[in-house]
């Protein structure tokens, strides 16, 4: 057999190149496992922390309908986090360790959730823009090389389009409303546009891991490719709403059949990544508090389960 001459790592790469999915018990390079655990858990943390800025508006949604929708959306994000933690655990990561890393600040999550949600229009903008960006990131991941991650992403993607549409609908309603409502929508777009562009990560030139991740098919497009797609997708939608994208350099480029656009403020991006975003401390603290305040519930449930088990055993004896 010719494959006998290939190293384990070369055989692994051959499978990846042939688009054969890798499953939990298959052999994989340690670096592949580590990269995946980091990427999947970072993604899971983003879903969980991402509930906070929107959760902020559940009690103040303008109608019962909007409240029910927002509640369902935020509940979906909890589900996304759980699908992803479950995928990370198939790689041998422990849930408690993953959470501990989030709480200590060792693990990262998407920088976008470190910005405050100041008005109801932010709920529209997050659904429309932020979930829109997440969809662009996530759709290619449905074909990512690691089976459990790809399957989790299929589930996530099915639910995301509701998120984006409900956001767009909020924007549309505001934009068709009173001048004050439209101004609120424009203000939200002004604040969220640039942080959303940051969601695709650093420029390709500053993203040293991209090449290996593309080779492993953990990632299927580069950061800059996705950012370009996003701008091309969103500008016409903003125009439909009658909103102005806050970028003086934004211009259609006939030759590349895409928009030219201004550069992200990378100093701000790195500062937020380092934990200095406007809400960074508040977000992590909210997760730590939830974990600590839930400790007695976790303990009580285990004690209860243990007691019931023992009672059943005694009854059977």
């Amino acid at each position: 057999m010719e494959t006998a001459e290939l190293t384990q790592e070369e055989q692994f790469q051959t499978r990846i190149d042939a688009d054969v999915r890798i499953e939990p018990k298959d052999w994989m390079p340690e670096a592949y496992r580590k990269t995946l655990i980091r990427q999947i858990s970072q993604h899971a943390h983003s879903e969980i922390v991402g509930m906070l800025p929107e959760g902020n508006w559940i009690t103040r949604a303008p109608s019962l309908k909007r409240k029910a929708i927002l509640l369902a959306k935020v509940q979906d994000e909890a589900g996304h986090g759980l699908y992803l933690y479950s995928a990370a655990e198939t790689l041998g990561a422990s849930r408690d360790q993953l959470l501990a890393d989030l709480h200590s600040g060792k693990a990262k999550y998407s920088s976008i959730f470190n910005y405050p949600t100041l008005s109801w229009a932010d709920m529209g903008t997050i659904g429309w823009l932020v979930d829109g960006a997440a969809i662009l990131n996530q759709v290619p991941l449905c074909r990512t090389s690691y089976g459990p991650y790809a399957r989790a992403m299929v589930r996530v993607c099915k639910e995301e389009s509701f998120h984006q549409r409900q956001g767009f609908e909020i924007m549309q309603t505001l934009c068709e409303g009173a001048p004050a409502q439209k101004a609120m929508a424009q203000d939200a777009l002004n604040r969220w546009w640039w942080p959303t562009l940051m969601m695709f990560g650093p420029k390709d030139a500053d993203s040293p891991n991209t090449e290996q991740s593309m080779k492993w098919r953990i990632k299927r497009f580069t950061n800059d490719e996705l950012r370009q797609k996003f701008v091309d997708m969103m500008v016409p939608q903003a125009e439909f709403l009658g909103l102005t994208v806050p970028d003086a350099q934004l211009q259609w480029n006939e030759q590349k059949q895409g928009y030219d656009f201004g550069d992200v403020d990378w100093a701000e991006f790195w500062d937020v990544v380092k934990g200095n975003g406007p809400c960074s401390r508040e977000r992590v603290q909210a997760r730590v508090d939830a974990w600590n305040e839930g400790a007695w519930v976790r303990e009580a449930a285990l004690a209860h389960a243990e007691k019931r088990k023992q009672r059943a055993e005694t009854a059977a004896a």
């Binding site: 589900g79 399957r151 976790r298």
Partner: peptide
């Protein structure tokens, strides 16, 4: 479809419904 954590089977089924 995936996995989840729960203290016992009953809770696992309830959580599975929600997740």
């Amino acid at each position: 479809v995936g996995s989840l954590h729960a203290a016992d089977a009953e809770m696992a089924i309830q959580n599975a419904r929600d997740v």
